[in-house]
Simulated scan of single mutants.
Amino acid sequence: MFADVSGPSFIFWPVGCGDTTTVVVSDTEVVQIDINDKLMADEEGNEHIPIVDELVAKLPQRDGKPYLSCFILTHPDLDHCRGFADLLERVMIGEIWHTPRIFREYEDEKNLSDDAIAFRKEAHRRAERCIEEGGDPGAGDRVRIIGYSELFEPGERYEGFPTNQFYTRPGNAITVLDGADVSDRLHAFIHAPFKDGLADDRNETSLAMRLIIGSEGNTLRGLFLGDLSYPTLMQIFEQTHAHENNSMLEWNVLLSPHHCSKKAMYEDGLLQQDVMDEFADSQLSPGYIVASSNEFPHANSAGDNPPHRKARNRYEEIVNDAFLCTGEVSTPEQVQPIIVSITANGIELDIKDYKLSESAEATLTAAIAKARGNSAPPAYKVGFGAE
């Protein structure tokens, strides 16, 4: 089992305004949804976790190396893939899931961040291995493409890709993980991206899904919606209702879209109550809403990036149990994630007394020491996927 949890869990890491969620499925199966390995050290301390170091230290081992069953990229913005190259070098990744957009555009690498380049290169390699094998190429080479795409048509780049095994369209479920049938412990229902979103703003092509972990009678449901905004969110609800799949919207944990952006429920400054009603109607008990973001300001000015106080206020009006922010739960004095787990007593929230790994602690200490000697902020190449 992933260190520091005792059962199937969702772990939301404090990484600033960026998504980094670990899904613990079983003793040997761990899934990572997005990554934003970003230190922001200063004189006052740091509430962010060096996530690659932490994963390397706490993932289960296979053949003497940290093993991640699956890495899922919701979309290749930098705040969702920063650190992927480092992760790939230090961890064995059995399978990766992604949407087609990483293949479809930005062929000129000068427009890509380094980690987006690394992800696309690895996705290409794995897709080519699947074509060569005509099926499953085995752990370390598996890739699943999610969403509508012309990539597989005759004459296109991935003609011959084994779509029957490794291609999933919205409206369908995935119950195979890294070559194993996991239907008794993991169910991933894919809500988006939609076919008519291929040419839209990159955030609107985010992978959106509902995950169930745990065994029958003791399960935990999470709704993960990437960086989607109000129109696409409503499209998800409407399409799901139209296909009589309402149960596929149910959640115990909602990761608020786009780091708690007001664009999830406001258009032209006006609250769109229908989407809030949909969130409320699909909530189970217990119910938690998580913002993967920095600490909230008391108020926002026009044009501010997320997190948005107005969005938080709306979520707090509907949440059953608690609204939680990763950048507020974690402090420089006690660096820790938000963990929601299945225990013998049911679903429980754990947000105290987390033990940071020695390697992550050392990285954090070194970053703080370096920052004290240099007031300039860390420099990152920002290209495709600017936050």
Rank of each mutant, 00 (worst) to 15 (best):
D4I: 08
D4F: 11
G7M: 03
F10D: 05
D19Y: 05
V25R: 06
T28L: 08
T28N: 12
Q32Y: 03
I35E: 04
I35D: 01
D37L: 05
K38G: 07
K38M: 14
L39T: 10
L39K: 08
D42W: 13
D42M: 10
E43I: 11
E54K: 09
V56A: 01
P60M: 03
Q61E: 08
K65Q: 15
D77F: 15
L78F: 11
I93D: 02
G94E: 00
I96Q: 10
W97V: 03
T99V: 11
P100Q: 07
F103C: 04
Y106A: 15
D108A: 11
E109G: 01
F119H: 05
E122N: 11
R125Y: 05
C130K: 01
G135P: 02
D136S: 00
R142T: 03
F152E: 02
F161W: 02
P162D: 00
G171P: 07
D178T: 01
D178S: 07
G179P: 06
G197E: 12
L198N: 09
D201S: 12
R202L: 15
I212T: 12
I213F: 03
S215Q: 14
L220T: 00
G222E: 05
P231T: 08
I236Y: 09
N245C: 12
N246E: 14
N246P: 07
L249S: 01
E250F: 10
V253N: 04
H258R: 12
H259Q: 15
C260T: 09
S261W: 00
A264D: 07
E267M: 10
L271C: 00
Q272H: 12
Q272K: 14
D277Q: 12
D277A: 12
Q283V: 05
L284N: 09
P286Q: 05
S293Y: 00
E295P: 15
F296C: 06
H298K: 14
A302V: 10
D304Y: 08
N305H: 14
P306V: 00
N313M: 12
V319Q: 05
D321Q: 06
I342F: 02
N345T: 07
I347T: 03
D350C: 09
I351K: 05
K352G: 13
E358F: 07
E361V: 05
T363D: 06
L364G: 01
R372K: 13
R372L: 06
A379S: 15
Y380D: 10
V382T: 13
G383F: 03
